[in-house]
Design a protein around this nucleic acid. Structure first.
Lengths: 202, 202, 202, 202
DNA sequence: TGCTAAGCGAGACGGTACGTCGAGTCTTGTC
DNA sequence: GACAAGACTCGACGTACCGTCTCGCTTAGCA
């Protein structure tokens, strides 16, 4: 009505409280980390733990999924910087980051949510893949393709399949493996798998 | 007094209906296959779809977890018979069974449930692992150890790690790979991975 | 089929157990006396307290009402014998029987049931009135009419109204009056009411 | 902090809806009038008929009794004004109000409930007596005592007993008498009973 | 003495209502 | 106009009985 629009129009009235927003996200992650799935998670519990009214949540996110996606997104560690020297080292760096991500309670829950709610909440999965999975996938692909180019890996390598092997192994380990993954896990995986990816004679 | 006890004494009263039991399991699996997680799943819906009173469900299973475990357990395909000739062939057979298991809607849901509810419902996971995961793990281990013994695989092979690579790759593919997994997937995985497991010189 | 009907045909098979029947009635009355209404009363509770299967109850009574009617019917004290000398004495006798009937836990409950379930369970009421109320009403009417005939009561007495006054007063007392009705209550009521029923001059 | 407290501080949050409250009471009375006792009465039915969630009922009344008491309390007609001229006229006025109260479906049900649930739901009875019975009892007592004072009634009258006679007669009639009580019933009762209460000689 | 038919206790069956909890929405007064 | 508080309708929870239905066993008279 009286928005004169000097650039980004500041809406009338009291601005939204960033403190509330942070409290909501934190409460959500806490509850997820305490073992709740998207469905066990109760908006009422989040509101209560965050010291916030339910309205304040629904004003920002129209449903649980959206809130969960945003909460999980704040959690993923940034991609580690790659040395770019050898393929082996870069792979170990990447896989080790995955191991670390799954090493703590929260990270493990992120994976659970991501993997389990796939069929149930397609939009959640879609957004999660876009934000968290794709960047890692892209980095992995780049390293492998570089390896093929530099001759560190065999020229006929099925890069997609190789990605599946590397990622899948790490995920499987963090899911079904021993509670605390050994520190040199990434190294050992890369070494074993690389053997099948190395050029025939070398 | 007049219990003659020919082995297991039949308890007094009307015996439980096997038909009802089957209907409940079927309804549960149907609903899971339609995309419901353990939490979205409503006992009321199961009862209604099975044409059964809620009491009849609660009489047998005291909570949702127990029911879901029993339902999932009826679902897993039996282990495929192994030819036992070459390690490569047996591995392909095993991995292909995993691919098939995950190829249909129900199988995929089984995995989702199993993987997602792990932290949330520890008893569910425990029982599921015991019934479904362990037998497959054991078979895989046997094949690999046989390969080491016969010299088809390198003598210093880390069998546990190899198992993780094989299983993880298949799981990852069925989770994040294309909708319909290619028929020769198992073969390609085995071939690539075997390269790193074969004896050094041969 | 082979009933030859020598008088009352004994049906084939095991005869019904009188012990069970008595136990059921007793259990029913116990539970009513413990403050349950026709609706709070649960067949399951009756069966359990009587040490009897539910079938055994339903075989005899097709619904709760019928059972309750039969149970209550066993409870009413028989009408007291009337001296037949003076109207005043006979009235006191009758009213005192009503007082005694309502003086104990069970009797009071009978009245509660009878009065409360009237609109709800018309058939119950109907049968209860027929068995328990009518005989008393008839006795009262006879005494009053005899009084009119003998001149002990005024000739233009509205007998029906007089009955209502006498009965109603007793019922009201047993319902809203003090817990233990005074022993001479009937006498005092009759005396006060008779004053209005006596012949004008006398 | 900022509660200025102009008398009774309004509690935080959305205030309770009076409309819902009225709808619940109305639905309750409707169902009672349709012949349901306290026990047949289902909260679910009340909620559904009132177009209200069950929670909204349980938020206000913690059990059926409390709801029923409140519902019945809204029903009782206010005490009729008394002319205060003659005892006879005032008694007729009071008794006629009782007759009218019991003349309609709802009123009759009120009495049924009140009388039947006495032993079963002591708190219900207690509160009902306090709200509905006591005021009438008090009015009746005052008229009778005035009559004794003015000499319209005999000086040695047992007022309590007289009250029982008058009230009991009316209740008995409305319970066991003909469906539609005659219009002059109160008059006739008072006249007959007064005869026994009038001063000896006059 | 053994057969047949009904009664018996136990208890499972498909249902209905209970009283509780949380979802997502709406409605207050305050900031 | 955002905020906390909390009432709103709705629907699932797990429990208790309903009245019906098997079960295997008992109890009688008739053969």
């Amino acid at each position: 009505m009286t928005i004169q629009g000097t650039g980004t129009a500041r809406p009338a009235g009291r601005p939204r409280s960033e403190k509330a927003e942070r409290a909501i996200i934190e409460a959500t992650l806490d509850l997820i980390a305490e073992g709740m799935g998207v469905s066990e998670l109760s908006i009422e519990a989040i509101a209560s733990r965050a010291g916030v009214g339910k309205t304040t949540i629904y004003r920002r996110w129209s449903n649980k999924e959206d809130l969960v996606v945003d909460a999980l997104a704040t959690l993923k560690a940034p991609l580690p910087p790659l040395a770019g020297v050898s393929v082996r080292e870069d792979l170990i760096t990447l896989l080790d980051a995955m191991r670390a991500d799954s090493g703590n309670r929260r990270g493990r829950c992120v994976m659970n949510i991501a993997m389990s709610e796939a069929d149930r909440h397609p939009r959640l999965t879609e957004r999660f893949v876009e934000r968290a999975v794709e960047p890692r996938r892209r980095a992995l692909r780049e390293v492998l393709e570089r390896g093929v180019a530099t001759g560190e890996l065999r020229p006929d390598l099925d890069v997609t399949l190789a990605m599946a092997i590397l990622s899948g192994t790490m995920m499987w380990q963090s899911k079904w493996g021993p509670g605390d993954l050994p520190e040199d896990l990434a190294e050992r995986v890369v070494d074993m798998v690389l053997a099948g990816m190395a050029p025939p004679a070398a």
